[in-house]
Amino acid sequence: MVSSPTARLGRIFIHLFMLLIVSLCIIPLMAVFSTSLTSESDIAQHGYSLIPLRPDTTGYELVLKNPQTLLRAYGVSILTTLVGTLVGIVVGALCAWPLSRPDYPHRKKLAFFVMFTMLFNGGLIPTYLVTANLLQLKDNILVLILPYLANAWFIFLLRTFFQTIPMSLVEAARIDGADEFLTFRKVVVPLATPALATVALFYSLQYWNDWYLALLYINTESLVPLQYLLSRMMSNLDFISQNVSAMPAGVNMSSLPRESARMAMCLLAIGPMLFVFGYFQKYFVRGITLGAVKG
């Protein structure tokens, strides 16, 4: 393709604009990174900065002092994210497909049923009663996976993507003698690859970032995921600084993890997801063009 000078100029402007956006996204992260490498006394003296003036690795040393805990938490997080994403995308897609089909008779009812869960919830205590007492899922790795498998928001997202698939292709497949599942696999999956990849990415983020399920249902240290390790560190400090006047004397604040350690932990927790993101990006290009299927 030969591009005209105006088009080239346009592209340069787009790049400049994107550069602005991207730097806005990266600068705060640099602050986090720089804090993870700065000692508290340096922050007190010189303030925060984007580039560590005198790199100090104590934060990382503190966090890595106990590698078993960290590795185990990585293990739990990776496992729940993998299984959750794989099963979740199947559950979500299978629910979204009929919702996207104008010929599905209970479409409206099902859509309402799904949408309702986005608005109403039973609240913490009833949910806990069902999950912990009725389903007996406490201290079970499944409790970190099952509650998030069906997600109304993801299902609607998928449904909207599926709606762009022309019905003619579906009917053509049916005439060829394919049943519902085969049609889904042969027609929908290849055509909706970017959509499925997007939602799979969202599933994996949801699982990777969650700490709340662990807070409620996990008592065994060996089942603690990475984000709960992080959130525990954060909330310990938060609580003490907020409630210091209410607490009995002699709460020793010196034992709290320093800021650099907390930021180091945070960076260690997001690291793997950057790779995952790159992996999903592969699918953000069109798998098969419509024309190929039509032919």
Binding site: A132, L216, N219, S231, N236, F239, I240
Partner: peptide
């Protein structure tokens, strides 16, 4: 069951309320 400062109150509320 040793819980952190930020988690304890919330967790005990849930445990007490659910009759654990």
């Amino acid at each position: 069951r040793a819980l952190g400062w930020g988690d304890y109150d919330q967790k005990m509320k849930v445990l007490n309320a659910s009759g654990e």
